[in-house]
Amino acid sequence: MKIRRSILVPFGSIAALGLAVACASSPPPKELLDARAAYLRVQGGPAAKLNPANLHDAKVALQRAERSYADDPDSQATRDYAYVAERKAALAEAKAGTKQAQQDAETARVHAAEAAQAELSQARERLESEKKARKMAEQRARDALNNLATVAANVAVKNDTRGTVITIPGSVLFASGKSEVLPGAQSKLDQVAEALWDQAERHIEINGYTDSVGSQAKNQQLSKERADHVRDYLVSKGLPAENVTATGFGPADPIADNGTNPGRAMNRRVEIVVAPESGTAPESQADKWKQGQNPAER
């Protein structure tokens, strides 16, 4: 046995050497060099992770080419197999590239959707807080108006179908038979103007009324002039002129008995009507007038 082995070993070495010499004698064809390089490149790239199946195909193809090269280095078959192996490696690489691009697109889509969602909820929050702020402002304005009665003596505030109605007795505002606002009454109108600032977007009617004493025409004129003066004063305090109208109604729509002194005093008045917030037109005294229901003729 010892002898046999000692003979066999050198034989094996010689055989191996002979093979190596044969290999060395014909260098690998360009196709095989390309295929080896391509496989190494792709193996080290993302394909190993993204596309192992195609990488394996490439490996099998390269092994076939290597076997063919070992058997018959110069054959066309070796070159053909190597060519196919190089293409298989490139295919694995391309498929990995496709997959990567698809994943990138998906990620971008998800990011875009998340960003859109975030923006939407931000917008929603913004809207919500704006709504809240508006509601609070409206409430403040309503309170200011309703509290006017407690702040300013002789001023009555009530809500009816026309909106919020502020009634100021004529004796507070004007001297008998005159239409200029008394200097002492200006502070009262200042308070009214202040309460009305928050209502600047709403339509405000200034309605002048007299008692039934005296001529209709004169009362009509006086009530109109008084309403105009109150309007001018409020506008001078900052209310938007386009939202404030003045109308004289003379002795129309009495709120008390014209047969008594206190009743007549109550009927001589200026009403400031603030339209409801909704923007729907209130049942305006001026509209009634236009519709032929001239209160002065009643």
Partner: peptide
């Protein structure tokens, strides 16, 4: 596959 890869990259 190269054509597919190109389309996928464009879309991304």
């Amino acid at each position: 596959e190269l054509a597919r890869q190109d389309a996928a990259r464009r879309e991304a």
